[in-house]
Design a protein around this nucleic acid. Structure first.
Lengths: 188, 188
DNA sequence: TAAATTTCTTAACATTTGTCAAGAGAAAAT
DNA sequence: ATTTTCTCTTGACAAATGTTAAGAAATTTA
C-alpha cells in the first residue's frame, strides 16, 4: 500500500485525502507462481500494480511463447489496448514468482478519472512514460546486437537473472535460450 | 483540414462546433524535403498532424542514423516524452518528401485539454493506440526474421517503397541497406 | 545537359545467431 | 530421499545477416 502511494505521489502533487480515496479503490491480491493475471482471448478488466514479485507478458506464435516484457515491483501492468478499448486481448500475463498485486477494476478506474482529476493526470503520465520507455526499447532493438542487449539488461536489472527463468529473458531479448547461454558464458 | 477533422471524429463523438473550435487551434505549415520538424537536443513544443508527405523519426548512434519509424498522411507525429514532460528531446523528425502539416502548439494543446473535453479524450485514445501499435511492432521484432518483417511491411505499406529512400526503410526494419537489397531481389 | 552527389546493388567473405541433439543441473512432485 | 519433470548448457553444424569494397543507377546541382 505504501509502495502504491509512493508511486503515485512521486508523479503528481496530491493531497493525502485524495490519495487515500484513490488507493482505496484498489484491491490486494496474491498470485502464486504460475497463476495468470490475464489470459489471451479474454477481455482485460483490471490493471495491476506490482508490489512484489515478477510477472511476464507473452503471446504464443507457432507454438512458441514469446515474452515481450517482464514486470517487477513498483510497476503497473495490464493489456493497455484491451483495458482501454475493451477489444479482445491477446496477451497472457502470468506470475513467474509468487506476487503481491494491487488491482484496479476498469469501471473504478473510469470512475476515478471522473471524480479524482489527479488520477486522470497520473494515468496520462503513466501512459506517456510507458510509451517513451517502449520507444527506447524498440530503438535499441533496431541497432544493437544480442550481445549488447544482454549486457545492458545485465547492468540495468541484474536481479532479473537470479529470479526469472532464463528462457523468458532470452525471449525478451529476441534470442534463443541457447544463444543466451553462449552470451552468459563468455561474452563471445 | 478535412482530413484532420475526419481523423478526430472517427475516434470520438463530437459536435461540429467543438470540432471547429479544436481544429482552429492548429496552424498549417508546409515543409520541403529535408526540412526538420524537430531537432535533437531541443525541447519539443508542437505536435503535428501529417496531411500529406512522409516524415521520419531518427536518432544517431556511433555516427549512424537509426530510423525508428516513418509517419505518413493522417498520422500524428511528435516526440511524446519531450512534448508531455518538456524533457530534452533526442529524436530528429525530418521531412523526407515535401509535406503538409497541421501543427498544434503545446500550450494550446493543454488549453484545449481543459476547455474541450473531447480533445482530452481524443488525446488519450491517440496515445493508447500508439502504445498498442508500438507494442505489436516490438513483439514482431522479437520473433520474426528480417525477411518476414520485410514481407509484412511490403504488404501493409507498399507505397512506402516508392516514396521513401530504402536505407530508411532498412533501418526501420533493423537491418542494413545491403540486406534489404538482398531481400528485395529474391526473397532469399 | 553534364557533372557531382547520393543511393542502391552486387559479390565475397566474416560474424552472429539459430537449430538440433544430447546430457547436466535444478526444481518440483511423490 | 527418489523420481520425475523442467530448465540450462554444450558442441557441431546450418542459416541469416553484417562488412567491405566496388561499381551501377538515380537524383540533385550547376
Amino acid at each position: 500500500m505504501k509502495q502504491l502511494k509512493n508511486c503515485i505521489s512521486e508523479q503528481v502533487h496530491i493531497d493525502t485525502f485524495s490519495l487515500e480515496k484513490i488507493v482505496s479503490s484498489f484491491k490486494k491480491v496474491t498470485l502464486n507462481k504460475g497463476d495468470y493475471f490475464l489470459k489471451s482471448g479474454t477481455l482485460c478488466k483490471k490493471m495491476a500494480f506490482i508490489e512484489s514479485g515478477y510477472l511476464r507478458m507473452f503471446d504464443i506464435v507457432d507454438g512458441k511463447e514469446i515474452t515481450l516484457w517482464i514486470g517487477s515491483s513498483n510497476m503497473f501492468i495490464t493489456s493497455v489496448s484491451s483495458f482501454v478499448f475493451q477489444t479482445h486481448n491477446f496477451w497472457n500475463i502470468q506470475a513467474i514468482t509468487n506476487a503481491d498485486l494491487w488491482l484496479l477494476d476498469r469501471e473504478q478506474h473510469f470512475e476515478l478519472c471522473k471524480t479524482q482529476p489527479k488520477w486522470l493526470e497520473f494515468d496520462n503520465i503513466l501512459l506517456a512514460r510507458s510509451f517513451a520507455l517502449l520507444e527506447r526499447k524498440m530503438f535499441q532493438q533496431l541497432h544493437t546486437t544480442a550481445q549488447q542487449r544482454f549486457q545492458s539488461l545485465l547492468e540495468e536489472e541484474p536481479e532479473l537473472f537470479n529470479r526469472v527463468p532464463l528462457q523468458y529473458i532470452a525471449s525478451m531479448l529476441g534470442i534463443t535460450p541457447e544463444s543466451l547461454s553462449r552470451l552468459r558464458r563468455t561474452g563471445i
